[in-house]
Design a binder for these strands. Sequence first.
DNA 1: GTGGTCTAGACCACA
DNA 2: GTGGTCTAGACCACA
Lengths: 134, 134, 134, 134
Amino acid sequence: MTTIQVVRALIFVDPRSGKPLYEQIKSSLRDRIISGVYQSEDKLPSVRELAQTTAINPNTIQKAYRDLESEGWIYSISGKGCYVSEAPPGLLERRRDELVCQLKPILKELHSTGMSAEEARKLVSEVFERTDTP
Amino acid sequence: MTTIQVVRALIFVDPRSGKPLYEQIKSSLRDRIISGVYQSEDKLPSVRELAQTTAINPNTIQKAYRDLESEGWIYSISGKGCYVSEAPPGLLERRRDELVCQLKPILKELHSTGMSAEEARKLVSEVFERTDTP
Amino acid sequence: MTTIQVVRALIFVDPRSGKPLYEQIKSSLRDRIISGVYQSEDKLPSVRELAQTTAINPNTIQKAYRDLESEGWIYSISGKGCYVSEAPPGLLERRRDELVCQLKPILKELHSTGMSAEEARKLVSEVFERTDTP
Amino acid sequence: MTTIQVVRALIFVDPRSGKPLYEQIKSSLRDRIISGVYQSEDKLPSVRELAQTTAINPNTIQKAYRDLESEGWIYSISGKGCYVSEAPPGLLERRRDELVCQLKPILKELHSTGMSAEEARKLVSEVFERTDTP
DNA sequence: GTGGTCTAGACCACA
DNA sequence: GTGGTCTAGACCACA
């Protein structure tokens, strides 16, 4: 029981979130790579394994893995498994740029709803300082 | 001709952005209402008119209008047209909450990419101060 | 009959070639983009259309399109269709590099089989001069 | 220990290259036969030995050996080991034909990317002249 | 066991 | 109609 939960905990997915499952899987795995939980050359759970523990169709897992591979986060050796790529240069920065692009229009609209810069910065601080130790 | 240009200017849409057109239309119109360009009881361009001047499918415009109506931003009088509702109480706040919900996961991931709280706050300031007069 | 053949001619696929179908589809389309048959902003045949004319499963076509999109050759507007991206900078060069990487080991082995540089160059000339007009 | 290193040096393999391991093993061994490093009647390392020194799955080595045998490059005497066949007539030519078949579509696509025949020939020369003594 | 391909078929959002 | 997601299930090559 505990084991299953632990394994399950590898990936957080909410079928009702509106976001496609494979995107959520990608996010989960990418997060673990970025945060160092998965290190370079670590073996990822196999497609079938993840499929079982998450009760998600293997094709969907596969799609997520394939995407992560083509983006350079992981590589797969057919017949052996999937592994975390080593130090993907510029990858993190590219991802950050993507996120900033998503952020800006939201900030703009928040601004136009009358939120003050001060309030917005406070919001940022709340999210960041939850784990930051200044 | 001039009118058309004005009307055209109402709506900023990028079909390649990935965001659905009707969402972009909604954003454009909502922005103009929030920022006061459109005042309470102002008449909006008709679906057909907007569709023609923007070369967007009328169904798409229709969908945007219906959404804005059901959210309370505008109301329609069948046979006459669509009009801006008067200051709908709580509407702005609800929208702001939605935006904050969208913002948080992006901030979290930015945090995990190693961005500092300081950098993130600076980002906010940049977006906000472009129109703010301190 | 003729029409069908013409439409079919859009894509050359050989199920017995060993190469995955979606790769062959990608190659066909990429070739047509590179050679200018498909111009920037041109609309590609819809997934379903290609699927019908080629008798290939829509999912397979979809996979090819998705790949081409993530590589930057095309972009898709959900609900409208797929279009050729404009002047993807560096894309052609990247593809050429890929091809050169595939070429080299083959040349090396040809060399070790005792083929002379002269013979190999002649081979190149044959392939190239079939369309070249010097 | 020295032996192991020598044996190891026999085989150059990159698991991340995308090419199946057994193909890479075949290429390595075939190259050594063609180039005369392995002479007719020489004994090849045993499957088990190669598997150990290279940390490659024995099944994979086995598959490579079986292939090379069925193509005529080597022969095996059960219980004794594998040996290089003597100058198999036409084998080299058949291999060369295979390589030419692989080469052509790549050259064609290179051509369509705008590479000139001259550039392509130069590429050939580079690869060939690295070992050629003109 | 492990990744990869392909098909069939359902269902959704969007235009 | 058009792209996109997801599942179920078969089958293959490879390790």
